[in-house]
Amino acid sequence: MFRFAITRIAVLLPTFIGVTVIAFSLIRLIPGDPVELLAGERGISAERHAKLMQEMGLDRPLHEQYLTFILDVFQGDLGKSIRTKTPVSEEFFALFPATVELSLCALLFAVAIGLPAGVLAGVRRGKVFDHSVMTVSLAGYSMPIFWWGLLLIILFSGTLGWTPVSGRISVMHFIEPITGFMLIDTLLQGNYAAFNSAVRHLILPAVVLGTIPLAVIARQTRSAMIEVLGEDYVRTARAKGLPPWRIVGLHALRNALIPVVTVIGLQVGLLFSGAILTETIFAWPGIGKWLVDSIHRRDYPSVQGGLLLVASTVMIVNLIVDLLYGLINPRIRHAR
């Protein structure tokens, strides 16, 4: 198990280097530069432009800039935002909990509904329930996030008036951040009205963000379940006279979970990219919205640093999933 973990970690290093290259170069491929956008519509003289670029070190050759960037990264320094002059990591980690909270809730929603739906669809293969789950999940998978989000806002916030349109919490409440997670902070401070407000703000974005992962998880669970239910050991379990819930929920599900956990891990990357759209639609003050704003302003350090941190998070989550995989599947745990 230890060797397994070490090899998984070693593989991450080249991936990390690759991400730094991509994060660094992609933002520079977009036309325009930070100085131009800082100046705004009034424009800026060529001399002043050149001087500012020089001050920021953006006039140097690209490979030099990259070298400075990566050397700083390995010292834990992601640079300062051009726009706000605060360190990128500080900005990132101030907003990060909001995105994590949203993504976790979305994933929770996706797993809590997708997993049982997939299991039941697999068990009832070919029946009405199976067909309904597969149709609905295909629809959910195909629905563009921004469109789906707007539809829900129109229905639940507009017509029904059940949920707020945007934001993370009502302006009536002021919550001193402790952990940065609104649900936890409101509870820690015993402010149940604020907690209620936070939950109501969270529901729609979490549903919107969780829809695609839900569809993927439901479909993967279903097919894994169908495959596993045909296995010899399921027949053995039935031959032992075990009750059906135990056969499905223990003997079959434990094996079906192996591919499903992998897929859930892969959804984390999807969640972050989905969060960018979702946060923009719901004005959710998280990493996604911050990244989009930074891109608009060509805030190079924020974009490359932010991307790097997001990518690192995804890599770490996938590493955890790989290790979990070993826990679920004893055959991997024992393999050298």
């Binding site: 031959a239 006279g241 075990l242």
Partner: peptide, 25 residues
């Protein structure tokens, strides 16, 4: 009733022992 009998009063073993046991337990 059948479940009470199967595995208790009548039992069965199969052709492929490797795949007849659950790999996860």
């Amino acid at each position: 009733e059948r479940r009470r009998l199967t595995g208790a009063e009548m039992a069965m073993i199969f052709q492929e022992p490797m795949s007849s046991l659950n790999p996860c337990f």
